[in-house]
Write a protein that binds this DNA or RNA. Structure first.
Lengths: 230, 230
DNA sequence: TGGCACAAATCCGTATACTGATTCTCGCGA
DNA sequence: TCGCGAGAATCAGTATACGGATTTGTGCCA
């Protein structure tokens, strides 16, 4: 999405964003500007600016002790999916209309890696393949404003994703939905893509809600969540 | 949208954002961190951070000589409206469903101010009333993610808005569309709001495109647009 | 052993300083 | 008059420093 560039803030920002997309930062971790700065051998300011940008984009929240990945409430999940339901079916349909052979090939590759990693129980690989699949069809969305908005809304869910595939029933439905979308893409059928994506959105919302609900129940009464002082 | 807070970056950010919403900054103006810092009697860093945040949100672009408000290309306008068409009818419909009497009153007030300022030829007042109208119904949108996304997409158009109402035919259609939406809100009819807002989106897109097209033609061959070095 | 208070550490927000790149200015020469 | 080039000015990016608020650690006393 962003080019590497030769500017420190941009570099740190994309690195951090990538780590967030890959769920490599847990909500209990604390990101501190000085630590990041030291690890890159630079001063505090570029690291700080990258962190602030991630805060303003909603990926992180500021606490009194470092920055942390934002955890989604159930209401957040519902709200975010309301937006995703409006955007992604439409965007995917337009991608289906404008899709080129190389994008099709990349989609097929991503799908097969998803199936492979799932049967291997390779969760990190599954996450990566999943991100690849969505980034691939997003590449075929010609409207950049649409694409970056969707991309951002998708990324919000990286903090939840880890446990989504634990339940085999959920995983199976997930794969079914995804390969139906894939087939519709290959058929260049925008309407079918729209419909399949709509169904997928509802299924995904349900899955995330149930995963998050379980997470919240488990963490009950342990975490006094601390927020930034005002 | 944002609270005043007692933090300098936030203060500068909201002030600047307000000025952008009111079209008080022209695309030929250059916003420089040191100037802003001096005018507030603070150091360069908070001003700089506020500017960078506006850049990351797409309101400004960095040039080699200060920051400038971003000008929309015709493709930008089409792309932004594709997103708005997906979101605003739905959001307005949900607002219609959840609307409270005080919001209705505020909407009615905004509409009458729009009609008043239009007949007076009071363009700045018209812009303000217009912003009030949309912020008012957005307040009734219970999904905050939906509301801030829409708000941002609307704000992108402030740099174009100034000339939109010069053409009386456009202005008249605009008012008609807006009051139809207003009536649908008062009737608590989500479906009617959805339909009216959809119509309004298409009309607005057309209006912005034609205004912007004229602007671009007029500015032809004068501006060598300079972008940030990489 | 447990609570309490005081000291130390942590980390954000802000200020100031330096550097290098780009743009502007102005004067010189054709 | 116009083009050209060297120096000045501007401004973003980065580094370093300090203050203050909050949290954590520690040791004393009941």
């Amino acid at each position: 999405m962003d080019k590497p560039s030769q500017n420190l803030v941009e570099t740190i920002y994309s690195d951090l964003r990538l780590r967030l997309q890959r769920s490599e930062v847990s909500p209990s971790d604390r990101l501190v500007d000085t630590e990041i700065a030291d690890s890159y051998g630079i001063s505090r300011m570029p690291a700080r600016e990258a962190l602030l940008r991630l805060v303003s984009e909603g990926y992180l929240i500021g606490t009194t002790r470092g920055f942390a990945v934002r955890e989604l409430s159930l209401a957040d999940i519902s709200g975010l999916f309301e937006v995703r339901r409006q955007l992604e079916p439409r965007a995917a349909a337009s991608a289906a209309r404008d899709m080129t052979p190389d994008v099709e090939a990349a989609l097929t590759d991503a799908i097969s890696r998803i199936e492979q990693t799932l049967s291997d129980g390779n969760i990190p690989g599954l996450l990566a393949a999943n991100v690849d699949f969505r980034n691939t069809w997003l590449r075929a969305v010609t409207n950049p404003h649409m694409a970056v908005t969707i991309s951002r809304f998708m990324d919000y869910f990286q903090s939840v994703r880890l446990g989504t595939f634990a339940d085999p029933a959920v995983a199976s439905r997930y794969i079914d939905g995804l390969s139906a979308i894939h087939r519709a893409f290959l058929a260049h059928d925008p309407l079918a893509v729209h419909d399949r994506m709509t169904l997928f959105m509802f299924a995904a919302e349900e899955a995330y809600l149930s995963v998050r609900r379980r997470q919240l129940e488990e963490a009950e009464a342990i975490h006094p969540i601390r927020r930034r002082r005002k």
